[in-house]
Design a protein around this nucleic acid. Structure first.
Lengths: 334, 334
DNA sequence: CTGAAAGCGCTTACAG
DNA sequence: CTGAAAGCGCTTACAG
């Protein structure tokens, strides 16, 4: 509706619309003089190509899609920053768009199909539950790049933190500090697009406990919110746990601390607590939170880089898995 | 590349590709029997229409764009939730995509043009600095819906919290509690896509201070991070402020509290502090934070609703400004 | 150095 | 009740 097209520019510049198209993509066949004239018209008219038409004709999109379970996750903040900044600095010509799979398994599946078949992006960076296997095959077929974060599926490129190391550091630290009744807090793996649990952390925790002759406890939450942590406290008291590895993250940990204050449970004297992620929050609450830190910014950067290397080389070789370090940040809660 | 098209479905179902298109959009002209047959083929083949082609042909996109200064802002979390959930429940047929204007004024401007002229969405919900006036005129011309959050530009539809009320509640509360040396903390309005300052909060704070015969102080931060708050503390001590209204939000407030602990400043005895936003954080830190709460979820919902009413009615009448309430949540910091 | 033509995969009057 | 045809705004061999 009143939108400028290539033809408007062409008419104004007295060339064919093909020439305008060539100028815009910098084709060397067009003489400098013509190019300059066309560019001047483009600028004067404020012409911007219609992306839809361009994509349809070219078959690719110049956009990368970031797919996460929700738009509003605090813990991913650094990860997103890594992704954003790497995109902006290394691939300024690409647009990064963010999709949320919120709304249940079915919606998520439909969204993946939309994105994939609707040809909405050239590459996909996924923080959500990974697409199903048949969808992944579609990805491979359609030669779209797919990078999974915090996951480990053999047939797909994955970037993740070292959950085994993180859990090991946390569990051994609790033992060292003298805790003997240990429990882990994880989120629940579920169909409903709810938080999922990192199995590496859980397994490692259990292994180490059992090797030490202890029976590991297991508590679960179904969302990453302080309230979920608060609600855990009565159960923690009932079982008399004295060391909690909150693999569900710092937000839930903060809730546990708040709940303990309400119930008069002294941290770290009666209960030691370790979180995961090292959010800014961790050093602000009282007592401050011992936690496992991952290089989230770097991981985001790596995801973008892998994504583009998949796009550029169209590798078909076995997908690379990249694992990042984890370290323990000790604070007052242990 | 090997992607299914309407023609593949048509061939398989022994109809014309027009018929398939009609079936897909539920045109009543197609008999139930034919429709069923076609739908079965669609399902069997796993056909999904190419969005790019569809958009090009239709001229609209079935997508709403959310535009924010970064993907990773904690304070907007509830706002985003309101937007997301309203989209998912009320407009499941639409796709919500999130763009970030991070990377400076120029990139932002280019992105707006891309989005607008590239025809990437039918409606835009903006949490960033608003597009320039000329861009806004382009929006009007191209009949794209534009809704601004937390802004107040006459020619455009805006959803915002009541900054005057919030500032009034905060300032009067500080005075009531006995503070006499008041300062406000705001972020900086800048070209660089950095945090911007809400002028209503600043003006109201100053007015009330002056009416009470006090000279208002003004501190600024350039990002919404606890560290920025921490750095403010030495300046706070130097000026001996005893009441701070941190209009820059709870994250910065949390940093001020942390900084005060380091410097041994007792809150609220020596310094009273009020934040803005009522993040989960506010009740978790120690001392817990008195703050101004806005109905962020509702505001997000309203933004989506306004956006669709603009799309549906294509109103040309004067744009509506909607203002939401603010209330004071008193906790330990005052 | 430049242009006419076909095609990307859809939608939608229009005709039968 | 169904189909042939034009068109959405680009790109890109191909021809001149």
């Amino acid at each position: 509706l009143g939108n400028l097209t290539l033809h408007d520019v062409a008419r104004e510049a007295n060339v064919s619309h093909t020439t305008v198209s060539f100028v815009l993509k910098g084709d060397p066949r067009i003489s400098a003089a013509t190019a300059e004239r066309v560019l001047a018209v483009v600028k004067r008219l404020g012409y911007v190509p219609n992306e839809m038409a361009r994509c349809l004709a070219k078959g690719c999109t110049s956009t990368i899609a970031l797919v996460s379970p929700t738009f509003s996750t605090a813990y991913e903040s650094e990860l997103l920053r890594g992704i954003e900044e790497t995109m902006a600095s290394k691939h300024p010509d690409y647009v990064l768009v963010h999709y949320s799979t919120a709304g249940g398994q079915e919606r998520a599946e439909a969204l993946w199909k939309q994105m994939l078949r609707g040809n909405r992006a050239d590459g996909f960076i996924c923080l959500s539950d990974p697409p199903s296997q048949s969808l992944r095959q579609d990805f491979a077929k359609s030669r779209k790049a797919l990078v999974l974060l915090d996951d480990h599926i053999e047939d797909t490129c994955c970037i993740r933190g070292d959950g085994r190391l993180g859990a090991q550091l946390a569990t051994e630290h609790l033992l060292q500090q003298g805790s003997r009744r240990l429990a882990i807090v994880t989120s629940i793996t579920s169909e409903q697009n709810q938080p999922r649990c990192n199995p590496e952390r859980l397994e490692t925790f259990r292994d180490i406990c059992r090797k030490s002759g202890l029976e590991p406890g297991h508590l679960t939450v179904n969302h990453y919110h302080p309230d979920a942590g608060k609600e855990l406290v009565s159960s923690i008291l009932r079982h008399a746990w004295d060391g909690i590895f909150c693999a569900a993250g710092d937000m839930v940990s903060a809730g546990i601390i708040a709940g303990c204050r309400l119930h008069g449970v002294a941290i770290p004297d009666k209960l030691r607590l370790i979180g995961y992620d090292d959010l800014p929050l961790a050093s602000l609450i009282a007592p401050s939170l011992t936690t496992i830190s991952q290089p989230l910014f770097e991981m985001g950067k790596a995801a973008v880089e892998r994504c583009f290397s998949l796009i550029e080389t169209r590798e078909t070789e076995s997908p690379k898995h990249i694992k990042f370090d984890a370290r323990l940040i000790q604070r007052e809660s242990t």
